[in-house]
Nucleic acid binder design. Structure first.
Lengths: 247, 247
DNA sequence: CGCGAGCTTGATGCCGATCAATGCATGTGG
DNA sequence: CCACATGCATTGATCGGCATCAAGCTCGCG
């Protein structure tokens, strides 16, 4: 519960890191900041933390003190109900923020788990509040990030509430590749960092259904699936599944 | 698209309203503000707007300029996919904020529709940003409200991703009564402001399933259902459906 | 080399969707 | 004031998509 009670594998790395020289600055919190303000942001993000694959960055119930920006690696967030049901609420990659849910009650309300060895930048929340009172750009950018999370969540609700398995998986893949592409990766080839079960939890499906749907897409020539290695062979057809007027 | 292009039934009512004397101040944006700061907030919330039943307060695509606090009445928010699928993303009652999704792109991304004749307080967003740079309390409260929306959305994802029809409807009813109770209404008796179809859209179910589930709850003696008039006869059993370890 | 976590595939069953008819409340015009 | 239209809700019958249960399979790793 106490943030000083670090597990041995969750090393605190207090060396200096600079947003102003980070190659993620076009994707992360600093978006749109002037050179000058960027350097003021450097005073905020004072440390990094490494999280080994399978370890959690924070857990539901822990005191909320900081937001985290993914620097390298890949995370999932997960909420649990009292009777033990889990729901994966998102997958986060480089430049994306973790921990926004914690502001509401000063406690984290979900678990954030690294799906591969990862590094995050630690953003002490009260310092972020302070700094964003000092310059509008940062305040506005932060609000946009929170709002974007709300919009994203609404999209997931639409998916969970009204799409069928194939449509859900297609939407998931397109969303992933789009975000990967924004980070300079291929738009058509990717390696999944999560299991079929985690995909299923996110999409409201069972792992068998996810697997079967992958197989179906492959049979139909839309994908090349080799375990977690995915190649998209017919992006337009995936898009049509999500947006199209066909069944 | 332009906020001055009001439809004749969406009257702008620029008379003065004061947060400091509003009986919703314990539920709304002003939560936790000192007397003094409350009065500064009065300068922000300059006008009200009436929205007739069935009309929308804003629509997806419109320019985002203001947030809205529900003063009286009841709203739903709704997102649509390109192929015309709808998803109700929430129901809002007195003291709750509408429009947070618009910050992300300066455009609204959902429709907000009044389910009964309603009034909202207009909160010009750039003025809110300005004022929240001036005092921490307001800034923090606003962040909490956004964060709470994210937490709420995660709860809905859990519901849509892992619950069965009965569990969904039970969770929905309990959530409604809890919020109504916080506003001084009965915890056991309520009038639904939305149709079966709207409930179904929110819960990822068809209207027939919602209707059948209501009937089932009634047969089992948990509810008394007369159209939209609902009386809860066995709250513990509803709670057990949501949280319990039983199927 | 053999174990085990994760993935695939098949057989079967159930929950909720769909299709269809009827009921009920409200409102409107004759 | 009744006849009818309209929107919403209920209920029944049937269907289908996904869950569930149950084997095997693959691949990385000790």
């Amino acid at each position: 519960m106490n943030s000083t009670a670090e597990s041995p594998r969750l090393r605190l790395e207090p060396f200096k890191v600079a947003c102003s020289s980070c190659n993620l600055r076009e994707l992360c919190l600093p978006v749109g900041l002037s050179r000058e303000n960027l350097e003021r942001l450097d005073t905020l993000v004072a440390s990094r933390r490494a999280v080994a694959r399978g370890e959690s960055l924070f857990r539901a119930g822990e005191t909320f003190l900081s937001l985290y920006a993914v620097r390298t690696g890949f995370f999932k967030t997960r909420v649990s109900s009292e009777d033990g049901r889990d729901q994966v609420t998102g997958f986060q990659m480089a430049g994306e923020l973790l921990g926004l849910d914690g502001i509401s009650t000063d406690n984290h309300t979900c678990d954030a788990v690294a799906l591969e060895d990862s590094q995050v930048c630690v953003i002490p929340y009260n310092q972020l509040e302070g700094l964003s009172r000092e310059f509008t750009e940062l305040q506005h950018q932060f609000h946009k990030i929170m709002s974007r999370e709300i919009v994203r969540d609404h999209g997931v609700m639409l998916l969970l509430g009204s799409m069928r398995a194939e449509e859900r998986l297609a939407a998931f893949l397109l969303n992933l590749t789009q975000r990967l592409q924004a980070r300079g990766f291929s738009a058509s080839s990717l390696i999944l960092r999560m299991t079929r079960e985690e995909i299923g939890s996110y999409l409201g499906l069972k792992l068998e259904t996810v697997s079967r749907t992958f197989s179906k897409f492959q049979e139909e020539g839309m994908l090349d699936v080799k375990q977690r290695q995915i190649r998209i062979l017919a992006q337009e057809r995936l898009e049509k599944l999500v947006n199209g007027t066909n069944g």
